Amino acid sequence: MIEKQLWHPVMACMHLREEPAAVELLGTSLVLWREPAHDHAHEPVVHAWVDRCPHRGAKLSLGRVLNHLHGARLECPYHGWQFAGDMAARPAHGESLAVGRCVHVPASPTFEPPASHCATAFEAVERHGLVWVRLERPDRTLVPAVLTEPPVFEPWTDPVWRQLICGPYEVQTSAPRLVENFLDLSHFGFVHEGWLGARSHAQVDTGRVEEGGAGVAVRDCKAWQPKGYAGAEEGGWVAYRYEVPHPFSAILHKDATEGDPVSNAIALFIRPDGSEACTAWFAMATLGDLSDDEELRAFQDAVFAQDRPIVESQQPKTLPIGKDSGIGEVHGPADRMSNAYRRYLTRLGVSLGVC
Rank of each mutant, 00 (worst) to 15 (best):
C13H: 06
M14F: 11
L16V: 08
E18F: 13
P20K: 07
R34N: 00
H42V: 13
W49H: 10
R52L: 12
R56L: 14
A58M: 08
S61I: 07
R73Q: 15
E75A: 12
P77Q: 11
A84K: 03
D86W: 05
G94S: 06
A98Y: 02
R101N: 15
S108M: 15
P113D: 05
A115Y: 06
A115K: 14
H117D: 12
E123N: 06
L130G: 04
V131L: 03
V133N: 02
R134L: 01
L135Q: 00
R137P: 10
R140D: 13
V143L: 11
T148V: 11
V152C: 12
D158I: 06
I165S: 10
P168V: 00
P168N: 01
V171W: 12
P176E: 05
N181I: 07
F182D: 08
D184E: 03
S186T: 14
F188L: 10
E193I: 03
G194K: 00
W195R: 11
R199Y: 07
R199P: 14
R199M: 13
A202W: 00
Q203V: 12
V204W: 06
T206L: 11
R219D: 08
W224C: 01
Q225T: 14
P226K: 00
G228D: 06
Y240D: 03
R241D: 12
V244N: 05
V244Q: 03
T257S: 15
S263R: 10
L268A: 06
A280G: 08
M284Q: 09
L290I: 14
E294I: 12
F304W: 10
Q306W: 05
P316K: 03
G322Q: 12
D324H: 09
V330T: 08
D335T: 02
M337R: 12
R342N: 05
R342H: 00
Y344K: 06
S351T: 10
V354K: 03
C355R: 14
